[in-house]
Design a protein around this nucleic acid. Sequence first.
DNA 1: CGTATCATGTAACATGTTACATGATTCC
DNA 2: GGAATCATGTAACATGTTACATGATACG
Lengths: 185, 185
Amino acid sequence: MDFTIWQKNTLKFIILGLLKHNELTGYDIKKLFNCEIGDFWQAKHSQIYPELKKLEEEKLISSHIEISGKKLEKTFYNITATGLTTLNNWLTEPQDKIPPTRDDFTLKLYFIDDKNNPRIEELFAEERLQHEEKLNYLTTRMTELFSSTEKQKAHYGHYLILKKAIIREKAQLNWLNDELNNINK
Amino acid sequence: MDFTIWQKNTLKFIILGLLKHNELTGYDIKKLFNCEIGDFWQAKHSQIYPELKKLEEEKLISSHIEISGKKLEKTFYNITATGLTTLNNWLTEPQDKIPPTRDDFTLKLYFIDDKNNPRIEELFAEERLQHEEKLNYLTTRMTELFSSTEKQKAHYGHYLILKKAIIREKAQLNWLNDELNNINK
DNA sequence: CGTATCATGTAACATGTTACATGATTCC
DNA sequence: GGAATCATGTAACATGTTACATGATACG
């Protein structure tokens, strides 16, 4: 069964999507990957800045410079009409296949294989800690951003993906706890 | 909050892990990515064959050729003692951070954002179909491979990761169905 | 005999990470 | 004045994909 996928310059569409409502600097975009958007994609500044230049060459975004303080130049980017069309086309394209999870934990579990190897319990404990931290972060963000139904409606997609991530983390934690109990029996 | 991860030549350890119990050809390894191992990692043959050569140079694996039929040469690879040590060291290393999901669906949802955009319902329907297919495949594999508790114990890691994937797919499907109901209200 | 699959490889390209670089601003 | 963070960039490298290539074998 073939679950192969592939991403063709996804970063491009993420940038366009982020610029849909606000003008942003490269640094702003970089920082957004540290928030809950980092749950589904990540990129370093060394990839973002060149991509912004490329998008500007392609006329999908435009830029202007503002001076902050005495001489610090910030480059703000805006989406163009062409950029908006490109973004909307991508949004209506059929989806890619489900990508592989690429997580270390599953991989190691698969290769340890021996039920009595004490490393299994360690792995579970480490994994639980990480998911607890993440769930914690996600629920905090949820409270911060979407305390009212009005706020939920105003950024419905954002609300949905946060909710999705929270449900995923909870299911994951339940499973981890169940298996930890099984191991100790 | 920083959830940054990174994989340093994970394919290397996957190959070592797969060779732990059986000798395999590059083609065998390629095919394994089409099974449930493809749930957590994927690689094309164009990446596998060069990696095998590299691992042999590093003396982590060894190879011998067998003739199949009249002249088809198959190269079988075995893990060496050094390879086994390398694999075991990796298994006891602390885990990487949780990687981003990198799925198209979440990304598009985030950028559509408008609750009334009919594309949201389409996206959910497409996504549901994909997860149904995947769950179907995973449960079939589970029945094929782990019908008895003896079989579960014999390949406990494999059993665990299949179970994990099934639980994940079920949770995901529940959420998708719930949200589809919300949309239709 | 034709088609699917087995089996292996390389080259060009795209994507993503690490490290190297530099300088400004804010806040204590 | 020192540290953290703001702000932007490039170069070298690692990883992963697509396309190009070739030939054998199994099965109908």
